[in-house]
Amino acid sequence: MGGVDVVNGVAGAVIGMLFAVLFQQPLQDTWFKVRRRSVGAVRSLRSRSESSPSWTTFSLGPLHTSALIVEGDGEHPIPAEGVHIQVLDGETRLPGEIAHWWDEIAAESSRLQEEGRTPVWNGLRYAVESLDISRTPVEEHPEVRLRLRPTDYYTFLAAQQLDRRTPDGSTLRSRYLDPDRPLEAPAFLQCSLGVNVAVVTADDMLVVSQRSNRVRIAPGTWNSSVNEGVSRQIDSSGRSAPVLHAVARRGMREELSLEPHEYSLELLAFVLDVEKRHWSAHFYARLNELTRQGLQDRLSRGVADRWEHETIDYVPFRAATVAGYLLHPDRIHRWAPAAPALFHLALVHVHGRATVERAEAQAVRRYRA
């Protein structure tokens, strides 16, 4: 029996050695592959969990806005002939369950008028039904198509109450707006279409305005050089669609007393304030001969809409200076949503993206130091 045990032991050792030679390496390779795939799967899941949407609003370091640049990069202006506007039949109206909000605003206006105070005038406006973007086949120039519907200012004010409870307890924001689909919203929530212009004087000074405390929307905030809403009464003759360049020129005349021959004008972008659903066409205007002092002298002789502005600042139009101005402690939380993106795009248009991005990064580092 002892001999049999020895033979069995020797046979087992030999078989073990053969097994190790034949299968150990393949088993190690298999284990390595399984481990590598497991690690890769975990990394893939981690990267997916840390992904971010491509549609994000404009920010500059600690300065965060609700302005979404939908079209335009600043470097390449959008040609006027590339903007097509269609006015649809049928006026935009509020849903029946909140129609009384419109009546409340009308009643408030009547009360103010009876008290001898300034009423809320119900001007005729446009609501944005949709904005579509494409490219021309050969040059790939942008083609922007705006579809508008008639509306009025009271409808706009009523729909601005996005977080007011409706009879069923929901809000307009929760019911109609999806933060992951920022370009999708019913027309009655988009009753604001306007232009914002960044004006630079002949001696390279950026004009920055502070909104008056008398305006109803965003009083006291710092804003673009010129801000003008599109009016059905003024900007559309007969049944013709409005022309955005003409609206910008009207704003330049009414707010800064400037005539078209005194400046160049370029359309840089279309921007949406996703928080309040305000659409804006962003323009850059360069004065041909009028300096800061010349413009200031012009304004001293009278402006049609002087009451809309509380203060005007003049900022050297250099990337580092404007970026620092945007981040200044007494400005950073007081900007109208569209203004920082507008000034950034204007800087890129004049100085180039690389220069502007480098200067803005330095300004952010200085702010955080």
Score class of each variant (00 low, 15 high):
Ala185Cys: 10
Leu177Gly: 14
Pro179Leu: 01
Glu184Arg: 13
Pro186Trp: 03
Asp180His: 14
Pro179Asn: 07
Ser174Val: 11
Leu172Asp: 02
Arg175Val: 13
Pro167Asn: 07
Asp168Ala: 11
Asp163Ser: 09
Ser174Asp: 13
Gln160Trp: 08
Arg165Lys: 14
Asp180Pro: 04
Ala159Trp: 00
Tyr176Trp: 07
Leu177Ile: 14
Pro182Asn: 11
Gln160Ser: 14
Arg165Ile: 05
Ser170Leu: 01
Leu183Gln: 07
Leu177Trp: 06
Tyr176Cys: 06
Asp180Glu: 15
Arg173Gln: 07
Ala187Asn: 07
Leu157Ala: 12
Gly169Lys: 01
Ala158Arg: 00
Gln161Asn: 13
Arg164Val: 15
Leu177Gln: 09
Ser170Thr: 15
Arg165Asn: 09
Gln161Met: 05
Pro186His: 06
Leu172Trp: 00
Asp180Met: 12
Asp180Ile: 13
Arg181Pro: 11
Ser170Tyr: 00
Gln160Phe: 10
Ser174Asn: 08
Pro182Trp: 00
Pro182Leu: 02
Phe156Gly: 04
Pro182His: 08
Leu172Ile: 09
Pro186Arg: 01
Ala158Ser: 10
Arg164Ala: 14
Gln161Trp: 01
Pro167Phe: 05
Arg164Asp: 08
Ala185Asp: 02
Asp178Glu: 06
Thr166Ser: 10
Leu172Asn: 05
Arg164Pro: 07
Thr166Gln: 13
Gln161Cys: 05
Leu162Asp: 08
Asp178Gly: 11
Leu183Gly: 14
Gly169Trp: 00
Arg164Leu: 06
Ala185Lys: 03
Arg165Val: 12
Ser174Pro: 06
Arg173Trp: 01
Pro167Gly: 11
Tyr176Val: 12
Arg175Cys: 03
Ala158Gly: 11
Asp180Gln: 12
Arg165Gly: 05
Gln160Pro: 05
Phe156Met: 12
Ser170Trp: 00
Ser174Arg: 09
Thr166Lys: 05
Pro182Arg: 03
Thr171Gln: 02
Arg181His: 15
Leu162His: 02
Ala158Cys: 05
Arg175Asn: 05
Ala159Gln: 00
Ala159Phe: 01
Tyr176Pro: 04
Asp178Cys: 09
Asp163Pro: 00
Leu162Tyr: 01
Leu162Phe: 03
Pro167Val: 10
Tyr176Met: 00
Gln160Arg: 14
Arg175His: 08
Asp163Cys: 01
Phe156Asp: 05
Ser174Gln: 12
Asp178Val: 13
Ala187His: 07
Arg164Ser: 12
Pro179Glu: 08
Leu157Cys: 07
Ala185Val: 08
Asp168Arg: 03
Thr166Met: 13
Leu172His: 04
Glu184Asp: 15
Thr171Tyr: 00
Arg165Phe: 03
Asp163Met: 01
Leu177Val: 14
Thr166Arg: 13
Asp168Ile: 13
Pro179Arg: 04
Asp163Lys: 00
Leu177Phe: 12
Pro167Arg: 06
Asp163Arg: 02
Asp178Lys: 03
Thr171Gly: 03
Arg173Ile: 10
Arg175Thr: 15
Ser174Thr: 15
Ser170Gln: 07
Arg181Thr: 15
Ala158Asp: 04
Leu172Pro: 07
Thr166Pro: 01
Leu177Cys: 11
Ala185Leu: 02
Pro179Ile: 13
Arg165Asp: 08
Thr171Glu: 00
Arg181Gly: 14
Gln161Pro: 03
Pro186Tyr: 06
Ala185Ser: 13
Pro167Glu: 04
Thr166Asp: 07
Ser174Glu: 14
Ser170Val: 03
Ala187Ser: 15
Asp168Val: 11
Pro182Ala: 10
Leu162Asn: 04
Pro179Asp: 10
Leu172Met: 15
Gln160Asn: 15
